[in-house]
Amino acid sequence: MKFDNSQPIYMQIIDEFKKGIIRAELKAGDKIPSQREYAQMVKVNPNTVQRAYREMENLGMVETLRGQGTFVRAGEDKRQEMAQEMANTIIEQFISQMRSLGYEDRTILAMLEKHLEDLEEDEEVDRV
């Protein structure tokens, strides 16, 4: 995976795993790579990976069992909670960026609806 070097890398690692859990690609009980394997896979400082894993444990996303490895812990409740949280963050960012451009809330909503409609049409055309 490619990281955005202007953002903390350990946070991006956490987000990657969050997305995996939210999309249900990673389910409770699934084993994830060891810290060392992961560091080599994504070519990142092992200390940074260690930081991300520790934080994921604190967040209740994963747990490390001595001698066995690191496993996804998040169940369905946790998955929904994380999905909601991530969606909120994205929406908040979107709103604040649009507002900073000077758009009024009503206009933002109208533009969003229009955009979604257009996308839907495009997708229908693709299907035909």
Partner: peptide, 14 residues
Amino acid sequence: AEQLRLKRNQSLVE
């Protein structure tokens, strides 16, 4: 390094 990215929203090159 991570603190710097967090504080400045910049890569190390920047």
